[in-house]
Simulated scan of single mutants.
Amino acid sequence: MAIPRIAVGSPAEAGHPDTLKAALAEFISMLIFVFAGEGSGMAFSKLTDGGAATPAGLVAAALSHGLALFVAVSVGANISGGHVNPAVTFGLFLGGKISLAKSVIYWIAQCLGAVVACLLLNFSTGGLPTSAFALSSGVGVWNAVVFEIVMTFGLVYTVYATAVDPKKGDIGIIAPLAIGFIVGANILAGGAFDGASMNPAVSFGPAVVSWTWDNHWIYWLGPFVGAGIASLIYHIVFIQPENYEELPSSAR
């Protein structure tokens, strides 16, 4: 069994030009993803007079988020790894694929990208609200936490299986496509209950712009726990020691 060896990193690594370029790529990818995903929900609500919370609206959200994430991961993959999600970054940190110092820079860039996307949407739509994630009637906070854990587990497990596992081979666009598909499918499963975030930055952007923080902690705790479980299970059970790829010593 392969046990992940995490790396803390250093301030020098956090300020390295390659790290800053990767952070910029994460910022841009997140901006693309949130602008398209959140914007599609706002457009659907406007066109249907508030009908975003309908079966058709749920399908539209799943489709737009899945397609946008496919693109966002693809365009960032060769620069930053195409995380586009603080929970994914956390899962890769626990797997020894990125240092803590670099992870923090990624988290800042991802959250800023989401906030800027929501600000741009708010401005370009003439002040339409960017709705924060919220629980549906009858859904308790711990119900939502479990939803977020399970959905994010599926997402990060997919990331490991298609993009991280050293045995994966050259599968081209399959990884970002699979990642987009699992997010779209999870939105269909959980969107009617807690909004199906799976991504703390995606929840953070609308919360900042609308200044709505009700139960916001759910959308951090659930995804981080789900990502951590997926990372550790995949490493301990499926990655063999002879195939384990550590971070280079310069990144520790």
Rank of each mutant, 00 (worst) to 15 (best):
H65C: 13
A117N: 09
S197I: 02
N215K: 02
G195C: 04
K46Q: 14
V116Y: 07
V141F: 05
V208S: 10
L24C: 14
A12I: 08
G138N: 04
F44H: 14
E13F: 10
A7L: 00
I149F: 11
F35Y: 11
P223S: 01
V73Q: 06
G191A: 06
A72T: 10
G57Q: 05
H235V: 04
A52R: 06
G96T: 00
T152H: 09
M151L: 10
L94H: 04
I3M: 02
F224R: 07
A230P: 00
F238H: 11
L67I: 12
A14G: 13
V75A: 04
S231A: 15
L177A: 15
D49W: 03
L177I: 12
C111P: 15
G82H: 05
V164S: 03
D194Y: 00
M1G: 07
A230S: 02
P166G: 06
F33T: 06
P176H: 07
G41D: 11
F90Y: 12
V59P: 05
L31R: 07
L121G: 14
A196E: 08
E148Q: 13
L188Y: 08
S250M: 04
S29E: 08
Y157M: 15
S124W: 12
L92A: 09
N85G: 14
M42C: 09
Y106R: 02
K46F: 09
I108V: 15
K102N: 11
L188V: 15
S124Q: 08
S210N: 13
V71S: 03
A161Y: 12
L135P: 11
V75S: 03
E245V: 14
M30N: 04
G82A: 09
L155A: 04
I3H: 01
Y234D: 02
G195W: 01
C111A: 15
L221P: 08
I105S: 10
P206R: 03
V183K: 01
L94V: 02
F70L: 11
V116L: 12
L120Y: 09
N143C: 09
A87C: 06
F90N: 09
A192F: 14
T89W: 00
L112I: 09
S210W: 02
I236S: 13
T158G: 06
L155G: 09
I173W: 10
I187R: 03
E245Y: 01
A53K: 12
W220T: 07
A201L: 07
M30D: 02
T152Y: 12
F133T: 07
F147M: 14
P11I: 00
T212Q: 13
F35R: 00
T125S: 15
S210G: 03
G50T: 10
L120F: 13
A25C: 02
I171F: 05
H83N: 00
P86S: 07
M42Y: 06
G140Q: 13
K97E: 12
A61R: 07
G66C: 00
N186H: 05
V73H: 06
